[in-house]
Structure formats: structure tokens, C-alpha cells
């Protein structure tokens, strides 16, 4: 029997994997991939809540679609940024993106 907790645990695990990718990778594109994984983990949770807690409505799915929209916008802008930076510095390694420092 698969319960809500299974789905939530799956979402949590996926989120942590994505977070690890976002925190521990050098390549900017890999970081964006990690963020995508995190967003998908959130979506799994939303849909699972929808299915188990309020099955007769589709609110969770609607919310998940909004997340997908935002994720699409985010990844488009993020990759454009990476391209732009790469053109200027010939580098997509985030370790060298440290202009924000003191």
C-alpha cells in the first residue's frame, strides 16, 4: 500500500539530491539542473497532497502548473545569463563568479 508519506519521502529525497547538485557543483548549468530537480520535488509533493487530501479538486495540479511556468521562465533567463557571462569571461565555472565579494 503506497501512502502519502511515500510520495513525500520521494519528494524529500529528490529535493535533497537537487540541493546537493545546486550546492556542490562547479558548472553553472549543473546548478540550474539541480534547481530543476528541486522544483520537480516540490511538484511531486503538491500533486500528492492534491491526490490524498483533496482528491475531488485540482488545486494542487493548478499550483504545480504555475510552478512549471515559473521554472520554465527561470531556466530560460538563467541559461541566458550563463551564456552572457560565458561570452564575457569564457567561463561557466561558478567558483570564478565571485564579483559579489568584498
Amino acid at each position: 500500500m503506497i501512502t502519502l508519506n511515500h510520495y513525500l519521502a520521494l519528494g524529500g529525497m529528490l529535493f535533497c539530491i537537487g540541493l546537493y547538485g545546486a550546492l556542490a557543483k562547479k558548472n553553472a548549468i549543473a546548478i540550474l539542473m539541480g534547481i530543476e530537480l528541486m522544483l520537480n520535488a516540490v511538484n511531486i509533493n503538491l500533486v500528492a497532497f492534491n491526490h490524498y487530501l483533496e482528491p475531488s479538486k485540482v488545486v494542487g495540479q493548478v499550483f504545480a502548473i504555475f510552478v512549471i511556468v515559473v521554472a520554465a521562465a527561470e531556466v530560460a533567463v538563467g541559461l541566458a545569463l550563463v551564456l552572457n557571462i560565458y561570452r564575457r569571461r569564457l567561463e561557466s565555472n561558478v567558483d570564478d563568479f565571485n564579483w559579489l565579494k568584498w
Binding site: 524529500g12 546537493y20 550546492l23 556542490a24 549543473a30 567558483d95
Partner: peptide, 19 residues
């Protein structure tokens, strides 16, 4: 092309703890 940075250990511990 897809290497870890110097935070990989700390990040791993953090993510495991969070999970």
C-alpha cells in the same frame, strides 16, 4: 565538464541531515 567544488563534503552532510 561537471566537477564538484570545494564545498562538496559540507553540502553532502547538510543535504543528508536535511533528508
Amino acid at each position: 565538464s561537471n566537477l564538484f567544488n570545494k564545498n562538496y563534503l559540507a553540502a553532502g552532510v547538510l543535504c543528508l541531515a536535511l533528508f
